[in-house]
Amino acid sequence: MRRPGASTLLLAALLPVGACAPAPAPAPPLVPAAAPAVEYLLVDKSERTLWAYSRGKVVRTYTGLQFGDAMFGHKQFEGDERTPEGRYVIDTRNPDSRYHLSLRISYPNPQDRAYAASLGRDPGGDIFLHGQPNGLASGRMQGDWTDGCIALANHEIAELYELVEDGTVIDIRP
């Protein structure tokens, strides 16, 4: 019978040590990519749809939007219950809104102010993208009910609130 050589003895001595070594760490779980920042919003009032764009591609679509009681036509005056049409920006956010979160639209712009002033009227303001009224048990209010704002479901505005930064352009089409 052959006697084991020195290298065989060394290997045999190291095997128990290797067997006690900690197992390699498992690969970290795959984390979903962060939601893309939205750079542009497009609202089509007649389709009741809002598209959110990132890098030129639609990344979110929200349907069933609710508007002011007088849905058709561009907002011109305080109390006309119309939703503005044209190009604006999201200029601030309100986590303590009377509605579930809100993103303010920069209406009135200088042209809106000038038009209303030429007729001796107030253009109105405080137009927001927002959720449903706080305290609503669930779901949505029926029909068009805002004073000119754009209402979404609460889960939709919560998502949009996280994706949109102040300064984001919003185009509102008839």
Rank of each mutant, 00 (worst) to 15 (best):
M71Q: 14
R48S: 11
I150D: 00
A116R: 02
V59T: 05
L129N: 01
A19V: 13
W51G: 00
R140C: 03
Q76K: 13
G5C: 06
R104N: 06
I90A: 06
Y161T: 09
V169D: 01
Y62C: 01
A37K: 13
V164C: 09
I172P: 00
H130E: 12
L129E: 04
V43Y: 07
P133V: 07
D166Q: 13
E162T: 14
S46A: 15
R140T: 13
W51M: 04
P95H: 04
H155R: 01
V164N: 01
I170M: 09
P16T: 02
P22Q: 07
A6D: 12
I105C: 01
T168Q: 06
L129A: 01
H100L: 03
D69L: 13
E47K: 14
A153T: 02
R98F: 13
T146A: 08
G125P: 06
D91H: 15
F72H: 13
S106W: 13
Y62V: 04
L9K: 11
E165N: 12
L14T: 02
S138Q: 15
L9N: 06
I157G: 00
A153R: 15
Q132A: 01
H100Q: 04
L163H: 05
E39T: 11
S54W: 01
V89A: 05
D44T: 15
R55F: 11
Y107G: 09
V59A: 04
Y99R: 02
Q132R: 12
G131T: 04
G73A: 09
A34Q: 12
R104L: 00
I172H: 02
L41D: 07
P108Y: 05
E165A: 15
P174M: 09
Y161E: 07
K75D: 01
G68A: 09
E156I: 06
G64D: 12
Y53Q: 03
D69Q: 12
H130V: 10
V38L: 07
G64P: 05
K45N: 07
L15H: 05
Q132I: 08
G125M: 04
V89M: 10
N134T: 10
R82V: 12
Q142D: 11
